[in-house]
Write a protein that binds this DNA or RNA. Structure first.
Lengths: 362, 362
DNA sequence: TTGTATGCGTTATCAC
DNA sequence: GTGATAACGCATACAA
């Protein structure tokens, strides 16, 4: 009926509007905005004034489309509510922002189909780079990642997988860290050790294999009942510890998939009237901020999470600047942090002394 | 020199490629993709096959540009490493994803200039909606938000401010919650109460005013030395409690700006050989997951954070669907959760009984 | 130094 | 049902 534009939507000023106001052409304005040479100083000033006056702001959508490059990075994590990931994302974001990139954040909940859906969505967004912190082996996810990579999008995967020669792998040697957790407990004299298993992500499986190798190398038998299914959430710790306590001979020490699980287990133990570490030692993984604050302060395996985020994002930026760069692997060392949640086994002091002597500890 | 295209960058298939392969026009393909009526079933099938075959994926940049609507939502928080915000963001994200929206995540660190920089960046990204969870009074931020709103972008602000009639405010009555914290401690017989203050964000100031009103209504004098500067991080709790303990008459109870601060303070106290709550009671705010796990479990004021995130995102979606919708205010009720970190004051049992009787508690 | 023409990949409005 | 044409806002190559 009416040709009056809808009153609620004000049109934004465009390059055209600015150009018209100044009396120059569109690309002159564009050149001023992008600090390109070849524009006289007086013109630059007049253009800038007009930009202010019209409250003009470039449309990144249009500019990305035309320039065939975007300034958005896709980041996918299992769940941002796991305190490990905010730290990682923060590292990514700080570097990204420094270089003018924005972050698309996605939560996969460790579900391959969700991960896949997000991967596909991000591909449509024409992202400039991609960081996958929740990769799980899945043919369609792998396909999509490979597709992204082959279309020139730099991809970083958190964890020990090489999806494609051009992938950048950022890892913290979870196998080695897992091994160290076992070694620590064994050193403390524990031999009946329970494990609350991580989820089957790349990182989780790697960590698990470290636990297994540790058991093997220290001559500990792997008995299924002592390896309960778990995950990376507090609830997995609560459920896991209950199953372990129902065993005829409950473990004297427990390895939790991560700190959250360790705290869930420790708190559940406390509520059941058990003491940590006097009755049961618990070791976590990740060294999240709370591990230190928790009482008992958690013995755990630390990773430089923030730094890993920084590294991931830097790798992407370097590959955006130089497309010819290939894949890479950046390994960070895990570090055992002994606090209050683990204690030497007291049941059999003689055995403990024996073990210590064997390992050459004073 | 050479006219050979760079070998590293494969061109993505476009609508044009699909149309050519099938032998139809571009807009026929577009119609199939967007499930528009008017295309025969055989054509639809052939188009879909071609899409698969060419591995075609729509370019959201182009589609947003042309359709003048995007599917990205800007979210800005103080810092994603404060466990309160992942919970909030998760609520936002779950709803967003359900409706096909993606999230731009930004951290302001409670710095107005960073907030402003992000606001401007998001405006350029032609976002479909915006959620500000870290608003601080600042004329330029306000200007930018108003500009966004007047250009038809739905804006949600976390905290008790009305920036513009069309703003949606999601709040949890921080003043009331702050008041409840004071009331709880008074009820426990405390009168010498220390406060580790929140930062001057909208939410922080509101909470602070609740503390002040609580002091006033319960006849407690407000003595500057007992109100130490703080923030929302663990470190503020550690620093704050130290200053409070240096006082000639240290407080018998402390109100922390939030749970993180409370845990920082409690842990520092423990390290200084003091007991919580026997020597000093501490009350937090937010009821983050860790508050329950912490030992002593934290008495705190709970807010339905996840639900607040959900509400914020829903408000945006409703306003995208119906541009005529105006502003709104959605208030959530804070809830006192009494756990182990607060205890009745024992110094003067008579006084305590007196207070209880006055308040009609058995 | 500045202007002209063209296209990025998509959607919208018309005819046919 | 389908196809031609224009436009979204911007950047690039080239000519002037």
């Amino acid at each position: 009926m009416s040709t009056v534009p809808p009153p609620t939507v004000l049109a934004r000023a465009t390059l055209f509007d600015v150009a018209r106001l100044v009396g120059v052409s569109i690309q002159t304005v564009s050149a001023v905005i992008n600090d390109k040479p070849g524009i006289s100083e007086p013109t630059r000033v007049r253009v800038r004034q007009a930009i202010d006056q019209l409250n003009y702001h470039p449309n990144i959508l249009a500019s990305s489309l035309r320039a065939r490059k975007s300034f958005t990075i896709g980041v996918i994590v299992p769940s941002i509510t796991n305190p490990y990931f905010p730290e990682f994302v923060r590292g990514v974001e700080d570097v990204a922002h420094e270089h003018g990139f924005s972050l698309f954040l996605c939560n996969s909940d460790n579900q391959s189909d969700k991960e896949l859906a997000y991967l596909q969505l991000l591909r449509r967004h024409a992202i400039a780079g991609f960081i996958d912190a929740c990769y799980m082996e899945n043919s369609r996810c792998r396909e999509t990642l490979v597709d992204l990579i082959e279309h020139g999008v730099p991809v970083v995967v958190l964890g020990n997988v090489r999806i494609h020669p051009k992938t950048v792998v950022v890892d913290s040697k979870n196998k080695q860290g897992g091994y160290a957790a076992v070694a620590h407990l064994v050193e403390m004299g524990h031999r009946r050790i329970g494990v609350i298993k991580p989820p089957p992500t790349i990182v989780g499986l790697d960590r698990l294999s470290g636990f297994q190798l540790g058991f093997h190398d220290h001559g500990l038998p792997i008995i299924d009942q002592y390896w309960v299914e778990g995950g990376f959430d507090v609830s997995h710790g609560e459920a896991g510890i209950k199953r372990l306590l129902e065993l005829p001979h409950p473990p004297t020490a427990v390895i939790a998939a991560n700190d959250l699980v360790a705290m869930g287990a420790a708190t559940a133990l406390r509520q059941m009237g058990k003491r940590v570490p006097e009755d049961i030692s618990i070791i976590g993984y990740d060294n999240i901020r709370m591990a230190e604050l928790y009482d008992p302060a958690l013995t755990t395996i630390a990773q430089p999470v923030y730094q890993m985020g920084v590294t991931a994002m830097r790798a992407i930026i370097r590959r955006i600047d130089d497309r010819s760069l290939g894949g890479a692997k950046r390994d960070f060392n895990p570090r055992l942090i002994i606090r209050a949640s683990t204690l030497p086994l007291r049941r059999n002091r003689k055995a403990r002394r024996l073990i210590r002597r064997e390992q050459g500890i004073a």
